[in-house]
Design a protein around this nucleic acid. Sequence first.
DNA 1: TCTACATTTCGCCATTTAACGAAATGAAAA
DNA 2: TTTTCATTTCGTTAAATGGCGAAATGTAGA
Lengths: 114, 114
Amino acid sequence: MRHLIKVFKALSDGNRLRILKMLEVRPLCVCEITEVLQLAPSTVSKHLALLRDAGLILDEKIGKWVNFSTNDAPNQSYVSQLLPLLQQWLPDDPQIQRDREKVLAVDRDQLCKS
Amino acid sequence: MRHLIKVFKALSDGNRLRILKMLEVRPLCVCEITEVLQLAPSTVSKHLALLRDAGLILDEKIGKWVNFSTNDAPNQSYVSQLLPLLQQWLPDDPQIQRDREKVLAVDRDQLCKS
DNA sequence: TCTACATTTCGCCATTTAACGAAATGAAAA
DNA sequence: TTTTCATTTCGTTAAATGGCGAAATGTAGA
């Protein structure tokens, strides 16, 4: 039960839901997510750690950046059944739509230097 | 998105998950749930209000008692897709199993007078 | 009407959570 | 090696959360 609670807790925050819906578009690094959510990098990092610990996302270090992506082939059954549901939810949410447009416009190399 | 967050928040507490799994056995009143969870009635009432506001359970006042039951025909799509998943989860959790045995043993008329 | 009692509401307290900035970490580039 | 910079960790603060007991609510039965 502990793991299930951890998954639901991870899903019960608006900013973390926004992150998951952004990652449906493509993998992202911390500074890209920071730009879209307009939060402090340390805050975004904490959200991502929570999502990772719940098994909802994966992180892969590539050079200077860490790429975060949705955990599409999870061995945990909770996540493998919840992620497809989440993918079909909130398609018309204006906040989510704005986030996704921003994701498409964001360029990592331009963004992260400033 | 607000409603989805409310549903996930309602699901992200151990005692509320225990309540939902108990209600899979049969409808229950506050004092029966109080007996199984060993919490104060006011605390249980608060948990139930949260689950009701999320659309996960229904309440029906019958005389002195209020019967709570899982919302099996919900018009909200989140709940209608999540409840079947929850029903197939945690079948072997020892805590959940103990709760269900207690539910079967509890007698409302004997219990609530004390 | 008066009493009993299941439930809810209110006020309070301890813990958790989400946010921030500053400092630490670690890899790439100069 | 030294600097740069993406990311994480740490410490702090304000708000949310889960718990309790006491008081309020409302219905059933005497």
